[in-house]
Design a protein around this nucleic acid. Structure first.
Length: 419
RNA sequence: GUGGAUGUAGCUCAAAGGCAGAGCACUGCACUGUGGCUGCAGAUGUUGGGGGUUCAAUUCCCCUCAUCCACCCCA
């Protein structure tokens, strides 16, 4: 084998492709119900867009970006996430003139990482953003709609919620937390001893038992929120309560990207490996300004489609698919008739025509292997009686109908041939 | 970037220095108007790649690449 899919990438076909499609279609359906419209942004962008929005020191920027120079000496990056490009587009095209905009997207993202369960170098995200408003109802809509996608897909999840404050109150909390951590340095893991100075909030997220023990008594950010953040959070929680969205208040929840403010949430599923987050999001009120636009507060989510696919594959839940037919002319005499019927049938149902088959038997095999539900048989007998024979491959039952009746059953009786 | 495990047929895996094998899948026949089941027959390999030790390497050693898992981090 000379060529393989590059490290951390893979081909999507067959059953897997159907699962991807199902997830994306479900997402689109829900997004439409909430009044979002689709946006497709380029797969690569000016590298600065990401270093600026995600933060120079974030891991994504420091070690995970696919950066390259094109022939015009432009420094570009394959997008590692979807929010920054959407905000860039909103600013560039003035999409949020005086109102807010609601946009959703789906597509590939790229991060140069060591692959493992639930993590790849090219992966897909489905996400949405509401930009131009600070109304907590928009936070609610993001959480409500995103978790509705999971529900619709029958994916179990645990919703974790927190508020990470804003540029006014977070620094204060940071100091308080740092002071607390300094008092307990000796009890922290090696990693956290250095981490607490770089990003003390991350210590809250540490998986080491010793650190969890220490931070269980740590001051909570929700006790240090400014008035604005506090009332915003309370309103959001009221909406969630009113509409019975269950969640776990998790003061340890910290999101990895710098731009988050106020609301932060994650949906966790524990049936996978160590990558538990299937969906995450939050508010990013300073991002648009950071990118050179006007003050456009926003809130959004992104879900990792690969992780959703993995969960669905594990649950071996098959999605109902459309009936698939194959037309088989039994001798060469019926070839033309069968071709005409093929063209006609394709106005209504998915229909195959067998290639390179030797006899009826081999054509039947092809039909079974091609995952067909029904075989339409046209032979001398059918032509003579002016009938069409149809066989249900699952039950093995076969019947004949006049052509008109046959088409009628397909169109008006959902292929209920009584087989 | 760090650590661990694993690379043999399309897939899942045996062979532990001496002829590279099995199951599933594939192809054909039994069966030229009926698939799945059954029986019989057949095809399939740079043993990931490179080097070394040896009369002899899939097996032992070194390098390299890839995959999986975990850390870091994230979806």
């Amino acid at each position: 084998m000379n060529y393989k899919a590059p490290k951390g990438t893979f081909d999507i076909f067959g059953k897997k492709a159907i699962t991807y499609e199902k997830i994306e279609n479900t997402g689109k359906k829900i997004m439409n119900l909430y009044g979002f419209s689709q946006i497709r942004t380029p797969i690569f962008e000016d590298a600065g867009l990401f270093t600026r929005s995600l933060g120079e020191t974030s891991d994504v920027v420091q070690k995970e970006m696919y950066i390259f120079k094109d022939k015009g000496d432009r420094l570009l990056a394959l997008r590692p996430e979807g929010t920054a490009p959407v905000i860039r587009s909103i600013i560039e095209n003035n999409l949020a003139q005086n109102n807010s905009v609601k946009l959703f997207y789906t597509g590939q993202m790229f991060r140069y990482e060591r692959p493992q369960a639930g993590r790849f170098r090219q992966f897909h995200q489905f996400g949405a953003e509401i930009v131009g408003t600070q109304d907590p109802i928009s936070d609610f809509e993001i959480i409500d709609s995103s978790t509705k996608i999971l529900k619709e897909l029958c994916i179990e999840y645990e919703l974790h919620l927190n508020s990470v404050g804003c540029k006014d109150c977070r620094p204060t909390y940071r100091e308080v937390l740092l002071a607390f951590l300094k008092d307990h340095v000796s009890e922290l893991c090696e990693n956290c001893k250095t981490r607490m100075y770089k990003n003390p909030l991350r210590v809250l997220d540490c998986k080491e038992e010793q650190c969890k023990l220490v931070t269980s008594n740590a001051p909570k950010i929700t006790d240090y929120l400014c008035e604005d953040c506090k009332t915003h959070f309370e309103k959001l929680r009221n909406y969630l309560k009113k509409f019975k969205i269950d969640y776990i208040l998790n003061p340890r929840l910290v999101r990895g990207l710098d731009y988050y403010t106020k609301t932060a949430f994650e949906a966790l599923n524990f049936s996978l490996g160590s990558q538990n987050a299937v969906l995450g999001g939050g508010r990013y009120d300073g991002l648009a300004e950071e990118l050179g636009g006007k003050n456009l507060p926003g809130v959004g989510f992104a879900s990792g489609i690969e992780r959703l696919v993995a969960i669905l594959e594990k649950s071996d839940k098959d999605f109902e698919k459309e009936h698939k037919f194959m037309i088989i002319p039994i001798t060469s005499d019926e070839f033309e008739y069968a071709l005409d019927l093929l063209v006609e049938l394709r106005n209504f149902v998915s229909t195959l025509f067998p290639y390179d088959y030797k006899n009826l038997k081999s054509a039947m095999k092809l039909a079974a292997k091609s995952d067909c539900d029904y075989v339409v048989l046209i032979g001398p007998d059918e032509i003579k009686d002016n009938q069409i024979s149809i066989k249900n491959l699952e039950s093995g039952l076969q019947k004949s109908f006049p052509k008109v009746e046959f088409l009628n059953i397909i169109n008006n009786e959902r292929c209920n041939f009584g087989l």
